[in-house]
Nucleic acid binder design. Structure first.
Lengths: 224, 224
DNA sequence: TACTGTTCTTGAACACGTTCAAAATAGGTT
DNA sequence: AACCTATTTTGAACGTGTTCAAGAACAGTA
């Protein structure tokens, strides 16, 4: 029934966890520390959050909700495909900047389809779908129009591209993450160029092959 | 100094571990079970292997050594680029088939650069480099010759492609992993086509962009 | 107020991976 | 043999995430 007081306790625990994750890192923070910092018993933390990773998940959900406002604003303003994509990326990088390091705790399971924290998992489906809509919106009405056969796959491909960029960012040890910024600019320009070339008649056979391959991969939802 | 008897104990522990991983899965197997199955005390397992994951690592090392013989044979026989790549892939898939499921324990950390088990980590560098040489060999003397600017990056790109394929395979729930086989065939054909097109004059600007991007990514070894 | 069911809180206990000091064994040297 | 050092083996103990039975606080109802 989630009473007012309970809601307050829950958010106190989450806040304590995030504080500790930020200052000490995910692995170095114990559930006992979190509980103690939030002035509750160990068991209480588990009453509100199924696991230590669920705390990161709660953060991710909150982040996604807060970013959606900014992303919508950014998309409304930006015109071309590249500035729209750039708008989405900018919001995410800016938002996550203070948490870049412990965000790794979330994305290190990216390759593990069983893990509920994976960005591909069922648990994260609603967040992912919200993102997909933004990428679809970024593509909407962009010139030249995308080839009909490829178009349905583009939001997911762009989402994947963005995921890769974030993953790179998280493990980027260069000062001030300079390399990520370089990669972002170059890859963005490459993506836009490639999409412009996509409708080029000479490349039709190649595109057909790509579409076929995407069909195979998408066949069924790959993860339970 | 690794006495004969010690060597025997070590391999008994490793064998027990692999048996249990295969039958019960990685997470479900405990170090106590492994030790007991190998008729040693718990501590002995840790005398020979630094961690539970080191056991998987030892398997991976052994696998890499055993496969290298078969891969060299396959490469010597096959002529075209596509049949050479296919030869490498075939050896790996065939070798790993019985261990497909628990291999996930190794690759689920693929996205975590800190993890020594990650295929990108320093720990796995020598295995990776051996693989890179095979992909370089597969490219060697293939017609048409690869563009000079792109060529240095191709072994690593193919290695990455292969990694992705294996990752897909591991989480492929379709009967008999039919989808992986489809994906392998289609993607292989796509890769070969793309490489053939790579030297195409009209695509030069696109290729230049790609090479620049690869330079940025490769800048320095991304993981400690 | 007294009773009742639900929500919330507690901390002991569990299972696991891992560490470590101490004991046992082996191999070499006098 | 007796002794010494290095290697190997042992199992208790630790810290961690997680579970759970028991109780406390609360909200509604008579």
């Amino acid at each position: 029934m989630a009473s007012k007081k309970a809601e307050e306790t829950r958010s106190r625990i989450l806040r304590a966890a995030l504080d500790l994750f930020r200052s000490r890192g995910f692995d170095e923070t114990t559930m006992r520390e979190i509980a103690s910092e939030a002035s509750v018993a160990l068991g209480a933390a588990y009453y509100y959050f199924a696991s230590k990773e669920a705390l990161v998940m709660a953060f991710y959900e909150q982040a996604s909700a807060e970013m959606s406002v900014k992303i919508e604003a950014g998309l409304a303003e930006a015109k071309g495909l590249d500035s729209r994509l750039r708008a989405i990326l900018d919001v995410k990088f800016e938002y996550f900047a203070p948490d870049r390091l412990f965000l790794g705790a979330l994305l290190r399971h990216a390759a593990d389809p069983e893990n509920p924290l994976s960005p591909f998992s069922g648990q994260t489906a609603h967040i992912r779908e919200r993102d997909l809509r933004y990428f679809a919106a970024a593509l909407e009405g962009s010139r030249p129009a995308m080839p009909k056969d490829l178009a349905p796959y583009l939001p997911k491909l762009l989402w994947l591209y963005q995921m890769g960029l974030i993953l790179f960012w998280i493990s980027d040890r260069s000062p001030d993450q300079r390399r990520t910024r370089q990669l972002r600019d170059k890859s963005l320009s490459l993506v836009v160029t490639a999409l412009k070339l996509a409708g080029f008649p000479l490349l039709r056979p190649l595109r057909k092959k790509i579409v076929e391959l995407l069909m195979t991969v998408e066949g069924e939802p790959e993860h339970a």
